[in-house]
Design a protein around this nucleic acid. Structure first.
Length: 272
DNA sequence: AAACCTCCCTGGGGGC
DNA sequence: TGCCCCCAGGGAGGTT
């Protein structure tokens, strides 16, 4: 399930591969994923050049000459290199045929999307919080959210508060920081928050250099798995011993998400 | 306004 | 074997 690190790994590989290349054709096999798939206007703008690919939260932004498109991988999306004439396989939805290579989007659970970056989408993305690796000033951020009554887990998961964190990295970072998922910001000291922010940043960076986390569907462009999963400490591990203190890891539903944590290491909700 | 709930979709796993 | 149900996940959009 692609979160910030997985999207970043794919983005940089894609940019290396097709950045600066012309798009010859685009084929759509499935009319709609989360939203209707937008096709690039190659009739009025033939051979549109892909100038760059950037990332905004968990979205990739493909910057063509005349317009930009957003690619979101949802929870099971991935991109693979293919031969342009290969028959479509199950769960393949889009093919981009560039001058030097062809790419396909595979997304079994169809939570992803490919849409033109209209004013509507630009506005949506502007509402998002800072990127943990780029423009996250923890003091400003704390001042802005200190009266938020929700627990820290929900805040980290809310893209309007902070961009790019999903269920895996939220749980891992809170465990490393020894903070209970339901602690509110006003019970945490600035020192604790600074430490949390550093742990989030180092966890994300480590995951990027490891090629991302592979659970079920995530693969790098060449089909190889990321290998950050070997270092996961609590995600999906409820019922097994805590790697730090050996007490049994618990799990709880927060916002309809299963969150694993250690009662002993991460303490009580609201305790300091 | 902030916080919560619902829905989209499919594969995999457990129970019967 | 096969059927059914539940679960996983992000985020838009609706409701309280």
């Amino acid at each position: 399930m692609p979160e910030l690190p997985e999207v970043e790994v794919i983005r940089s590989k894609l940019e290396e591969l097709v950045g600066g290349k012309k798009l010859l054709t685009m084929s759509v096999q499935t009319p709609k994923l989360r939203y209707a798939i937008d096709t690039i206007d190659l009739i009025n703008h033939p051979q549109a050049r892909l100038n760059a690919i950037s990332r905004h939260a968990k979205y990739m932004v493909w910057h063509f000459d005349h317009e930009s498109y957003l690619l979101h991988l949802g929870m099971s999306g991935r991109v693979r290199i293919c031969e342009p004439s290969e028959p479509w396989e199950k769960h393949e939805h889009i093919q981009w045929h560039f001058e030097n290579t062809a790419l396909r989007l595979i997304d079994p659970r169809r939570f992803g999307c490919w849409v033109q970056k209209t004013a509507h989408w630009t506005h949506k993305l502007e509402q998002y919080g800072p990127d943990p690796l780029h423009n996250w000033n923890i003091e400003t951020w704390f001042k802005k959210h200190q009266h938020n009554k929700r627990g820290i887990y929900k805040i980290l998961m809310d893209q309007h508060c902070l961009s790019g964190i999903g269920n895996i990295y939220a749980q891992e970072a809170l465990f490393e920081s020894r903070i209970h998922p339901k602690r509110t910001l006003n019970t945490l000291s600035l020192t604790q928050l600074v430490e949390l922010s550093h742990i989030i940043q180092s966890t994300l960076k480590k995951a990027i250099t490891s090629g991302g986390t592979t659970l079920n569907d995530y693969r790098q462009l060449d089909g190889s798995e990321g290998y950050f999963q070997v270092t996961l400490k609590v995600y999906g591990k409820a019922g097994t011993p805590c790697p730090a203190c050996q007490s049994t890891l618990l799990s709880e539903k927060i916002s309809q998400r299963t969150v694993a944590y250690c009662m002993h290491c991460q303490g009580e909700e609201g305790s300091g």
